[in-house]
């Protein structure tokens, strides 16, 4: 076994255990174990398990960016100092100073690439697990040869073989496969595009929008769908289901984050404040935010946007 295979072995073992476990569960519920639907549901359940296991990472991230807001005025001061200086040396000096401030505060608004690094081997592992099963060969753990053969033979609604990719579907001119793959790709690209658009238009602060990274990100918003189209061509339908459910999961998670705990200072945060104020008005309460913490957050944002003196008290008094 090569080094890469050794690294992937435990991941594949866990993936197979979860996949087969859910497959067994659906069979126990009385569903036909050989049907494509059960396999698709097993894959979808696997996504739910993987992504739910990652929620602590996301929550940790959100909390730490909230905490980073405490030093926002300091960061703003540094950004003002370098205002208008667009050369790379000033940018670098500015970034260094900002990072020092975050470090001193013991917090950081950035996510690090760990969430992405965790997901990549999982997806790769699943591709390998499904590819092995497609050959009718037993996997490294729970995926026995019998199950692998069953998976290879399974079709969704007795029309769409799960092991085919769009490439194979086109070469064999299998219409159900082509239609399923194409519509899944379109849906996937749509979900991805919508998620990115939501994050970028609603959940970013004015400072974030000024950075050169933001422009690049905007550009990428239109490039990612192309990447997805190319990969959809190669991967079998079963893997595409994993991707599709994962994208939908991200979309729902992002919408919840944007609505419930938006990035302070972003458009979504202002919308949420307005909504809360309206709600309180409807209930006949003064337009004060109920929690002390919310109130403080509000003051800090006002501070960094318009440089107003720090005032405590309800907005209606200002």
């Amino acid at each position: 076994m090569d080094f890469f295979g050794m690294l992937m072995w435990p991941i594949k073992w866990v993936l197979e255990a979860v996949l087969v476990g859910f497959h067994w569960l659906f069979e126990w519920f009385g569903m036909d174990p050989a049907s494509g639907l059960v396999w698709v549901l097993s894959i979808a359940s696997l996504v739910l398990v993987v992504r739910t296991a990652m929620i602590p990472l996301t929550v940790k991230q959100i909390k730490s960016s909230r905490k980073a807001l405490e030093v926002a005025p300091e960061v703003k001061k540094i950004q003002d100092k370098y205002k208008g200086k667009k050369d790379s040396l000033s940018r670098e000096a500015m970034n260094r100073e900002v990072m020092e401030v975050y470090k001193k505060a013991g917090t950081n608004p950035l996510a690090s690439c760990l969430p992405l690094l965790v997901q990549m081997p999982v997806f790769l592992g699943l591709v390998q697990v499904l590819n092995t099963a497609n050959q009718g060969v037993a996997g490294v753990g729970a995926m026995s040869e019998v199950l692998a053969r069953q998976f290879r033979a399974s079709t969704l609604f007795e029309a769409v073989p799960l092991h085919m990719s769009l490439e194979v579907g086109v070469s064999e001119w299998n219409w159900p496969v082509i239609i399923t793959a194409v519509s899944m790709t379109i849906f996937m690209v749509g979900a991805q595009f919508y998620t990115q658009l939501q994050i970028m238009t609603k959940n970013q602060t004015p400072q974030m929008k000024e950075s050169p990274m933001y422009k690049q990100q905007r550009m990428m918003l239109y490039i990612i769908p192309f990447f997805l189209l190319i990969t959809a061509w190669i991967f079998p339908l079963a893997t595409m289901f994993y991707w599709l459910v994962s994208n939908v999961y991200t979309l729902v998670q992002q919408l919840i984050i944007i609505n419930r705990m938006p990035n302070p200072g972003s458009e979504a945060a202002l919308a949420r404040e307005a909504k809360m104020a309206r709600k309180r008005q409807r209930m006949g309460l003064p337009a004060v935010e109920g929690e002390e913490k919310q109130d403080e957050e509000d003051t800090v944002i006002e501070n960094l946007q318009r440089k107003q003196p720090r005032k405590k008290g309800p907005r209606s008094n200002r």
Binding site: N95, R96, V98, M99, N108, L110, A111, S112, C113, L116, S211, M213, Y214, Q216, Q217, M219, M220, I223, I224
Partner: peptide
């Protein structure tokens, strides 16, 4: 790198 934007917690980035 630009696909997922500015995420690194360190400076310079990884």
């Amino acid at each position: 790198s630009p696909i997922y934007g500015d995420v690194c917690r360190y400076y310079p980035s990884c």
